[in-house]
Computed example of a mutant assay.
Amino acid sequence: MMIGQLAASTGLSVRTLRFYADAGVLPAQGRTTSGYRLFGPDAVARARLIRTLRELGVGLDDIRRVLGAEASLTEVAAEHVRALDAQIRVLRLQRAVLRAFIGSTDPEELRRMTDLTNLTAAQRRQIVDDYLDAVFGDSPSVVADKLAMGAPELPDDPTPDQVAAWVEIAKLLRDPDFVATSRRMAERARAEGPEPDVAQFEVGKAVGELASPAARAGVDPASPDALAIVERLEALGPTPSEDRTCIADRIEAFTDRRVGRYWTLVGIINGWTPNQAPDDIIDTWEWYARALRAHP
């Protein structure tokens, strides 16, 4: 059949059929004496398959492989699905970045968001690992293990809040001052020896139950009410081996709002539902430290 007949049978334009023929995916079987292309009986099915694959976004090179029996249609379809999945992930990230940027007027912020979200999952994880190496080195640490296990995992289809949280985390983990503060905390934890016993964990739980309401209510740490809370907490644990000022020093050494902020951001990215806001926890321990200092 001639190209006009093929066009009528397939619904494709003559120009499109010529393009397929020139690209080598729809070869003619010969030409008329006038030089017009002639197509064989399989050309209709072949042209319809090409049209379908093109509508699905499959490139001419892959179509040529299928029609040349270099690859099966299933193999090419699977490859194309993987490529589409990758494109979809990129588009979702781009959409989330743009939504997160709406309301900002700083072009540098948009560039930073784009750069950080375009990293692969392995590259994003490397930012966390670099921080852990800088803080803990090769020394074994329960805290390092907790940070590694709870590392943020940006999903394939993040929300604008998750994108913003990831950008803030990356900035925090690369902040030399935060790294230095974290290293001092880790060194002090190693110097103080083994993990506290079960009684100490019970005291920590009680601090939340007793000191938290006082902190929220604005109770003066120097007041008799605050002293009563301190004494109740001391009665729950072993006999203190150091004075209250030393205990307050330790609490303050391990209390940093940026650490609390880090876990808030990780929770946003990983979709955790916090039992208590980190800032509330820090408020409680800061209040308790002030109460200890006020009643040495």
Score class of each variant (00 low, 15 high):
M2C: 15
M2D: 15
G4M: 06
G4D: 07
G4E: 07
L12A: 10
S13W: 03
T16F: 02
G30Y: 00
Y36T: 10
G40H: 01
A47C: 03
R48T: 15
L49I: 01
I50Q: 09
L53N: 09
R64C: 12
E75G: 07
A78P: 14
I88C: 09
R89H: 12
L91S: 10
A96W: 01
S104Y: 12
S104Q: 10
T105A: 13
L110G: 11
V128W: 00
V128A: 08
D129A: 07
Y131K: 04
G137C: 02
S139L: 14
S139W: 14
V143W: 12
A148E: 08
M149F: 15
E153V: 15
L154T: 01
P155L: 02
D157R: 12
D157Y: 10
P158H: 03
P160S: 06
A164Y: 05
A164G: 05
A165L: 04
V167N: 08
L173D: 05
A180S: 09
V198W: 13
V198Y: 12
K205W: 13
A214D: 00
A217C: 06
G218H: 05
D220V: 04
A226L: 02
L227T: 00
V230K: 09
L233D: 08
P240M: 01
C246S: 15
C246L: 15
I247M: 15
I247F: 14
A248C: 03
A253I: 05
R257K: 04
G260Q: 02
R261K: 11
R261C: 05
Y262L: 12
V266A: 05
W272A: 04
D283T: 01
T284G: 04
E286I: 14
E286L: 10
W287C: 09
A291T: 00
H295K: 00
P296A: 02
P296K: 07
